[in-house]
């Protein structure tokens, strides 16, 4: 790691710069590498709405739980979703009460279970951003190819540009974005160009190693005020992205309005199974209700980077990892979880 860059970052004494990351894995890696301690206090790293679990509304969790409780039905999910509370408990709680929930590493694992147990309906809790949507497209491809009739998707798929636009338009307190590395693998770095131009903000696509994050933060400081996109993850990110993956997504999914916790409905920010494939959908439309556990919860503002975790009155007191009041504390990628556990 270039010692000049390290020194620059540590000693930076220019105007305060607020850099937002919109990727849960970036949030987690920033904590894990402890790089905050290597930065001048004038460099502020804020978490934005990059944690798909955190931005999912309670209506979605409730729907998952209802499905898991049905006869001859198993809800299949990634580990991340299991602890998130809906309006009456989490999937984990429901599982403890006898609901059928299965955790997998890959959605494609569902194919095997569906074939082994044709009498059971498997519903996959299909959550994710642009990185994961192609995985579901592949799942759909296989479901059709293998003529499987006992798999459905309950989707909570979202895309980044509209929500970044929302944050910039509604908050305007960000000086630069660490662009999500793996979303960019699929979409290409070009999707950030219109946003960079519109808001005159730099976007740097960053990898996940400590050195890569530090270099990207350095670049953002140097590019301050410029509406430009820079790719510092060239080993896997190109300008146009994975066009085959994009085509697969296009085949099965179409954009639609989606509700984001804390932001309400954002036009065209979600992806839904196309009309032709609606019979594989388990009720994903119109999941808009969001139940707040605690009136004083300010997850919405933390999620959009309006306030920091520390500025929420419940942080570390009424809201801790043992008794989380909102998604930001429940999810291992949540800003509050990371701020509390890895200060």
């Amino acid at each position: 790691m270039d010692s000049e860059i390290l020194r620059f970052l540590k000693e930076y004494d220019g105007d305060v710069i607020r850099i937002m990351e919109v990727c849960g894995t970036h949030t987690a890696e920033i904590s894990r590498t402890g790089i905050r301690k290597m930065l001048s206090p004038k460099i502020k790293l804020i978490s934005g709405p990059g944690c798909p679990v955190c931005v999912t509304v309670t209506a979605y969790i409730d729907a998952c739980i209802e499905i898991a409780k049905r006869e001859n039905t198993t809800l299949v999910s990634f580990g991340d979703m299991l602890r998130v509370p809906g309006s009456h408990g989490s999937l984990r709680d429901a599982q403890a009460e006898g609901a059928s929930v299965k955790m997998v590493y890959s959605p494609l694992d569902t194919l095997k279970y569906a074939k082994e147990h044709p009498e059971t309906m498997y519903v996959f809790a299909a959550v994710g951003f642009e990185t994961t949507t192609p995985v579901y497209a592949l799942l759909m491809e296989q479901i059709l190819a293998q003529q499987i009739t006992n798999i459905k998707l309950l989707t909570s798929l979202k895309v980044m540009p509209p929500v970044i636009d929302w944050v910039c338009a509604n908050q305007g307190n960000v000086d630069g974005f660490l662009a999500p590395g793996h979303v960019s693998v699929i979409t290409g770095s070009r999707i950030f160009a219109p946003l960079a131009e519109k808001f005159h903000l730099p976007f740097v696509v960053s990898g996940f190693e400590g050195e890569e994050l530090l270099s990207s933060i350095y670049a953002l400081i140097k590019l301050r005020g410029q509406g430009t996109v820079m790719n510092l993850y060239p080993s896997v990110v190109s300008e146009e992205g994975n066009t085959l993956a994009q085509a697969q997504v296009e085949k099965y999914f179409t954009p639609g309005d989606a509700t984001w916790r804390g932001m309400g409905s954002i036009p065209d920010s979600g992806m839904y199974l196309r009309e032709t494939y609606q019979k594989y959908d388990a009720g994903s439309l119109n999941l808009i209700e969001d139940h707040v556990l605690n009136r004083a919860c300010r997850c919405a503002e933390v999620l959009t980077g309006k306030i920091t975790s520390e500025e929420c009155p419940l942080f570390g007191t009424a809201c801790t990892t043992e008794h989380p009041q909102g998604a930001c504390m429940v999810s291992m990628e949540g800003a509050c979880f990371n701020h509390l556990t890895a200060r």
Partner: peptide, 22 residues
């Protein structure tokens, strides 16, 4: 003290240590 030169505070395990996708 992390490999890259940062410092991280590590808490005790919260929850069950479930594998993450995100």
């Amino acid at each position: 003290h992390t490999k890259v030169g940062g410092v991280r505070t590590v808490s005790e395990l919260i929850g069950e240590g479930l594998p993450r996708i995100c």
